[in-house]
Design a protein around this nucleic acid. Structure first.
Length: 435
RNA sequence: GGCCCUAUCGUCUAACGGUUAGGACAUCGCCUUUUCAAGGCGGUAAUCAGAGUUCGAUUCUCUGUAGGGUCACCA
């Protein structure tokens, strides 16, 4: 019989989620889509004090940005009635009981809470990633199911919601392995089937400790702000602890779905590497249109630099759009709209005499002046300049001073490109100034 | 500490028990018509340790070691 696959992503809106959390969302999504299944987003907001609307919105925005469309959405708090139903049933069946206990907050107040009647058995489950795991539940004792009939706690709510939504595959972080036995116990008590489990190894920070907000892990929306491409983040994050087993690394959203295989997920934790993520982004940057690049880059540029010709040049110098801001802030693009101010000594190439350099500069001015304004392209500029350069001992004798007089920088694009972008007039004027 | 999980280059990883242990990021060098960027080519670099099984272990078993997770009226 063909079983309809249902997976879910069940975050609690108690903070901004980092890459590690989104990786579990990505895997759940990919697994569902790969199998023509259903992907559910469930906001686990049973903790009323800590849950915030703001975080819920951030989760939704992030998922949308990444392109992880869910087929169903709901908040756990909307289901207290069915939680209550099962709670009452469990009490009636003798699987749970009401216990009068002193509140944990030290107030001394006696409250009634609901505890699970633990049968104290060994629980074994087959994890799609870890294999068979057996745990004794004796140490758990009669754990708490709910604060009261209307305030269910995590384990109870998870089991009931997964059951009611027909979740077939629970894909979640490794930190939930030890929660699994008690959830299976609850399933047995209410007569629910046990879904497949796949516990993902953790994502570690560069300090090899669990990725956490405290230690600088960023919300996914921060990557958006930095100008990363969502498909690159999707690709890069999916590759933390997983790979399709081929040597291809750059995958589109659809290719990821096609290639995803839960069984190829690594068993050991993985250290997150931002440099590699930037590389993924750079690779995906190659796939975007000039139009889009223009749009994304122009927002960081001052008006004087909003020239289409600058786009390719900028594109090969950035790994994410936010880098454009750095380029601008460092003044590396300034020479494109204002004549550089520089030390004339810097025009000297190696140990060539100043006279010789000046002479070359004049020569350059002369030949460039002969090019028609409409033919002032990098190819033509290169042709005439190289013709001279090849007669010299070293090409740098002319190429360096020309480049320097145009850019005023030790490091810059080559003189042909700069000259073309500057145009004939400005190029000649800067050359003239150097002479 | 109890329970559970894990262990290949610095990092992410590949390798039906038989490979010169492969790739990618990073790094280093060279080339690419001056510098930078981009690109190309190449180099350095790994099977945690010790036993066992086997003709042969990165691969299977055990022990050790080292990491990690979890032990709430949070999720």
């Amino acid at each position: 019989m063909e079983e309809k696959i249902v997976t879910r992503f069940a975050p609690s809106p108690t903070g901004f989620l980092h890459l590690g959390s989104y990786r579990t969302a990505i895997f759940s999504y990919l697994y569902a889509k790969k199998n023509n299944g259903i992907f559910v987003l469930r906001i686990e907001d049973t903790d009323k004090e800590r849950s915030k609307k703001e975080y819920e919105e951030n989760i939704i925005e992030s998922l949308k940005w990444l392109g992880l469309d869910y087929d169903k959405f709901y908040r756990q708090s909307e289901n207290v009635e069915r939680h209550k139903f099962y709670l009452e049933k469990m009490i009636k069946d003798g699987n749970a009981y009401i216990s009068k206990e002193e509140a944990k907050d030290g107030s001394g107040i006696i409250k009634e809470i609901i505890r699970f009647k633990n049968p104290n058995i060994d629980v074994t489950f087959n994890d799609d990633i870890k294999g068979e795991v057996t745990m004794n539940t004796k140490d758990l004792g009669d754990f708490v199911l709910a604060k009261n009939l209307n305030e269910p706690l995590f384990h109870l709510a998870v089991v009931i919601d997964d059951f009611e939504e027909g979740v077939t595959h629970v894909i979640r972080g490794e930190d939930h392995v030890s929660n699994t036995p008690r959830q299976i116990l609850i399933q047995k008590a209410i007569g629910a089937p046990t879904p497949h489990y796949a516990h993902l190894p953790l994502v570690l920070g560069s300090d090899k400790l669990k990725l956490s907000k405290r230690r600088g892990a960023l919300a996914i929306t921060e990557y958006k702000k930095m100008g990363f491409l969502p498909e690159a983040i999707l690709n890069g994050v999916a590759f933390i602890g997983w790979n399709p087993g081929t040597e291809q690394e750059i995958f589109s959203h659809d290719e990821l779905i096609q290639s995803f295989d839960l069984h190829k997920v690594q068993k050991s934790p993985a250290v997150f590497n931002q440099e590699k993520l930037e590389w993924f982004n750079k690779e995906h940057l190659k796939n975007i249109s000039l139009e889009e690049a223009k749009e994304r880059i122009f927002i960081y540029l001052p008006d004087e630099l909003k020239k289409e010709k600058l786009i390719p040049l900028i594109m090969e110098r950035i790994s994410k759009f936010g880098d454009v801001k750095d380029l601008v802030d460092r003044g590396e693009l300034d020479f494109f709209y204002k004549a550089p101010i520089y030390d004339k000594e810097k025009l000297i190439f190696k140990n060539i005499s100043a006279e010789k350099i000046l002479q070359n500069l004049k020569l350059a001015h002369e030949v460039l002046n002969e090019i028609n304004e409409s033919d002032f392209t990098r190819e033509n500029i290169k042709n005439v300049l190289m013709k001279i350069a090849d007669t010299l001992e070293s090409r740098g004798e002319i190429l360096h001073p020309v480049r320097y007089s145009l850019s005023g920088l030790d490091k810059s694009p080559d003189p042909f490109v700069i000259a073309e972008i500057l145009g004939k007039n400005e190029t000649l004027s800067r050359l003239q100034k150097a002479i």
